[in-house]
Amino acid sequence: MIMVQVFSTFESHSFLELTISTLEKNGINKSRIYAVPLDNRQEKRNVFDTLHRSDGTTLIDIGLALATAFSVIGASIGFELAWGPIYWGLIGAFTGFVVGFVIRLFTEKVFKTNRRILKGKHSEIILIIDCDENQAELIEEILWSHYALGVAKIAESGG
């Protein structure tokens, strides 16, 4: 006989209670159902990446684009100014980079943080169900109909 473990994650306790009662009504023994609460991240995410962790966003993309634009403008205007085009091009590049970096830092700190908070949908509970292979499809349908955030099945051969 092949045993199957079905894993699912839920957002709230009310859907979980409904799911467990529906599973019990469909013949799943209470001793084969495990609910494990998760501890969600409490600390704020870092804006700056470290050597060992990166979130895939960059803070210098706008800065580099503005540095290029400001250096061209600075070099063009520099022909008319006292220090010449090279110095004014470098000043323009530095200024553009700083402005772009500050813009990107502001958008990451303010807008992206608010968007992450509003997005919601955090897994709070993992539900693990041990069952026979012939019950797995029914259990999966019950989990999806009770708003599971994710479902996975693992088959293991029993003796």
Rank of each mutant, 00 (worst) to 15 (best):
I117E: 10
A152K: 13
Q5Y: 09
I62D: 05
E108D: 04
V110Q: 06
V99R: 06
M1F: 08
L105V: 04
G78M: 01
S8F: 05
V6Y: 05
V102E: 03
I28Q: 04
G100C: 07
A82P: 06
L127K: 01
L149I: 10
G78R: 00
R32C: 08
S54H: 13
K44L: 09
K119N: 09
G120C: 08
R32A: 11
R115L: 10
Y87V: 13
F70K: 00
H13C: 08
E43L: 11
N46Q: 13
A155G: 10
E24H: 05
E11L: 05
A136E: 12
G100W: 07
K119S: 10
G74T: 01
T19G: 03
T9F: 10
S8K: 03
W83D: 14
T22E: 12
V72L: 12
G158I: 07
L64C: 15
H13E: 14
A148R: 06
G120H: 06
L66S: 08
F79I: 01
K119G: 07
G150K: 11
H52Q: 12
C131G: 07
M3E: 15
N26Q: 10
G150C: 04
A82S: 14
V72Y: 02
A155S: 12
I62K: 07
I20S: 03
L64D: 02
G84P: 07
H122I: 08
V47E: 07
F70N: 03
V151F: 05
L16S: 06
G56I: 11
E133V: 09
T9C: 06
F48K: 08
D55E: 15
V151E: 07
K44W: 02
S76R: 02
P85C: 00
K121H: 10
R115P: 00
V98I: 13
F10W: 13
R104T: 15
C131M: 07
N134E: 12
K112E: 09
F101V: 12
I126V: 14
D132M: 10
F111A: 12
